[in-house]
Nucleic acid binder design. Sequence first.
DNA 1: AGCTGGTCCTGATGGC
DNA 2: TGCCATCAGGACCAGC
Length: 280
Amino acid sequence: MPELPEVEVTRRGIMPYITNQRIQRVVVRTAKLRWPVPTQLGTLLNDGLIKHVERRGKYLLLELENGWLLIHLGMTGTLRILSRGTASESQLLPTDRHDHIDWIFDKCMLRFRDPRRFGAVLWHPHNAGPVLLHPLLAKLGIEPLSADFNSALFHRLTRARSTPIKQILLAGQIVVGVGNIYASESLFRAGIHPATAAGRISVKRYEKLVTEIRATLAEAIEKGGSTLRDFVGSDGARGYFQLDYFVYGRSGEPCRNCGAPIRQIMQQQRSTYYCPRCQH
DNA sequence: AGCTGGTCCTGATGGC
DNA sequence: TGCCATCAGGACCAGC
């Protein structure tokens, strides 16, 4: 999926266009995502005002007057702002088969596209309680860019665990937002071998890991900032931005630090990349 | 054919 | 035995 940086860049990209805007109409072409899209979505949101655009982990949270729209982009989801110009609704932009949902505003529309349909669009009414207590959000780990993310937390929560640190990162129970790409990248930058048992990593090494996770994600968000213009205008699907990765996808290529060939291993059926010389 | 940026769910396992 | 937390695998899909 989009990992946290891509979700955050999406949030920043759509926010200025939809905040304080009223939804005129919702078009659901495909309700079959990871979970069924609420059939009454159109009715629920009709004439609804978008008050806030937030993020928790990789979930986007759009607050309306009567509840929250939860959006997850899955592996291949994108949200784009498309200009409607002065067109009437009968002149909506052409869709491709993976354009599942449109939220139509006065001057623009927000379009959700997701070829693999691992994404989700859910509704959480205010009268169901705080959105952060939603079952999908309640047990999420800490936000990596928050001040509360620290090495002591990492150390404490992993003492009894023999699980490889790479898998701990992906699980999202301690820290959210680190997906397969940035897990490899962060571990490389921290000099930690991805198969290391999480319970055997010292506080000091976790300090380095926390620093590098933050830096990796922050840099990716910054890079994405330059692509914000891509959220507007065309209907073409744009790939997500890519950093110059240190190890991800670079199997056999020389380590950018020491020149040793980067290795690829499988962990939990996911590829992990690392430098055998720089990471221990 | 086998891989791909996610993650929930189920059933199995292991510790107390 | 029972109750947990943890863990491995499967599931959902399309595209290359």
